[in-house]
Design a protein around this nucleic acid. Sequence first.
DNA 1: TGTATTTGACCACG
DNA 2: CGTGGTCAAATACA
Length: 373
Amino acid sequence: MQDGAGAEGGIHLLLTILADGEEQARQLGELAEDPRSRAEHYRDAAARLQGTLGKAVAVARAVEAAPGSSRGTDRSYSPRSADESSGGTAAAEAPPERQSLCNKRRKGLPRWTAKFRVPDANLEATPDDGFSWRKYGQKDILGAKFPRGYYRCTYRAAQGCPATKQVQRSDTDLCVFDVTYQGEHTCHQKQRHAAAVTAHGGGGGSQSSPPPHHEQQQDPSMQLVVMGFKDALKVETGAPLHHQDHDYYDHGPASAPAAVPFSFPSVPFHHHGGGEAPDNNPAAAAAFSPPGSSYFSAPPHRCPAVAGSYDVYDYEAGPPGARMGGADSSELGEVVSRATGIDYSSLYHHAEVDPHLPFPPFGGPSPSHGPYQ
DNA sequence: TGTATTTGACCACG
DNA sequence: CGTGGTCAAATACA
């Protein structure tokens, strides 16, 4: 499914961005016809459009500069048990013969990492990127103070979505989480813009389970959207992910992060019907609404109002050799950071936002935020 | 009662 | 053989 590789993925992304720009241009046109619109609205719209176009250009250039190389048919993530209840009911008796079908280490899936910084060390908090994840494991990692959590897409069973992520709190900075994503979302879950930092709720499905239907796109708060291309030029693992803990702008090799729209509203919690652990929310909410907050350590300008931040850094990369790609990679990195820096944050800050936005789970079939069945 | 998380064990990779 | 990733039974929660 996730075929988008290299340039192809970039083009896909480009198309998405352009579509976005088209929509923005249309909105601009509408503004022009609306007598009530004010100058600032124009400015916003124009800035937004400009930003989008700039990003499109950046992506286009990067694609041009980095002709993707096809990646082999990767994966075959195993739908072994979880997928269908193959073992569901009556497993057990047969001699455990686990491995035959499963490939424990999914190599070959696109992989990229992001760092999330959350204000204040609410030890129970974990970054939420807007997708629904289900935790399936936790492991103590050698040399790390905190265990690493393993998550997979909630819809893996239902839709075979191969996306997984690993979340690990930085041992040097409690506020920072290293999140490694692997695989693209092929599910059609609605990515909520209102993502945030979820306080782990003992067991309640805090962030999953919403029935497909519509969903109030609550949340106007700001969000940061970062993008880049995922499968960069080559891939197929091999290159160790490396990222310095102290520098958030470590642009890896010649590849770039996938389009990963994330957000961090300041007070994300709505205990709407669903039900989260009521205990945690208040605490978490409190932790995120500090006054003079500026959790943005790195980039010079970022929406200061945001309560949390994250940055995308690394991503799986190309072959070892491609590593010090010199000009190219650094340029790409710049591209990415610029794209990142672009104010998607402030743009979307103006609420409304078209819901079709940012970038769909890359790679997947045509994105359209359609309802998933 | 159904769903998500926890946790120990299993297994692949290096 | 050590480490990391995944499985799945047990458990917790709504």
